[in-house]
Amino acid sequence: MIERIVDEIPRFFTWYNTIFFLQAMGVTLALTLIGCGLGSIFGFALVYGRQTRGRLFTPVRVLIVGYVEIFRRIPFLVLLFIVLFTTEGFGVRVSFFGIALIAICVISTAYISEIIRAGFEAIHRNQWDAAEAMNFGRVATLRYVIMPQAWKVILPPAFAYFVMFIKDTALASQMGVLELTRVAKIFNDRGYSAFLTFGTCLLLYFILSYPLTRFGQRLERRLASSRNR
C-alpha cells in the first residue's frame, strides 16, 4: 500500500489538484465563518428579543423560544434537505452553496443564541438591578456591564461549537456542494487511493480548525485576565 501511495503522490499533488483542494477548503471555511458569523449576530438578536418584557412582546418571545427549541433538535442533514426542497417548492433558484449557507445560519442562530443566553444568565441578577437603578437602558447595561462579564462564559462553548461546525459542513457534500469532503470523494472516485485523498482531507480539516481553537483559547485568556468574575 505504501508503495502505491508513494507512486500516486506526484500525480496527485499537481497544480490543478492542489488548487481544487484549496478551493474546497475555502468553501468549507466560508460556510463555517459566514454561517457562524451571521449565526452569532442573529443569535444575539434573538437573545435581545427574548429578554423583552411586557405582554406586548409575548408573541415575539414565543416565536423565538419556538424557533430555538425546534432548530436545535433537527439534524443538520435533515435541515439541508428541508431548505433544498422548500426553496425548490417555491420555485426559487438557489445555488447549493446558498442552500448550505441558509441551513447553517438557521441552525447556528439557534445554537449560538442559547450559548449567549446562558452567558447572560450566568451574570448575577444584582448587576442588572444596579444598572437599572442607575438609569442604564438595556443597551447600555449589556454594553458596559453584562457583555464584559459574559464573554468569558460565552467564548469557550462558542468556539467549541464553531470547531464542531467546521466538521458538520461536510454534510453539505451530500447535496453536491464542492467543499472538502466532496472534493476528496471526487478524487477517490477518479481512482486515487482513499488513504491519500481522505488523508489530505483530514489534514486540511485540522489546518482549518486548529488555529480557530488556539484563537479561542487566546481570546479566553485575554478576557479572563481583564478581571471578570
Binding site: D129, A130, N135, V145, R229
Partner: peptide, 17 residues
C-alpha cells in the same frame, strides 16, 4: 424618578468588571 433617587444594596452590587 431614578434621576432623583439612588439606592445602595445589601450585596453592594458593584460592577465586577
Amino acid at each position: 424618578l431614578r434621576g432623583r433617587c439612588a439606592i445602595v444594596f445589601q450585596q453592594y452590587n458593584l460592577f465586577q468588571n
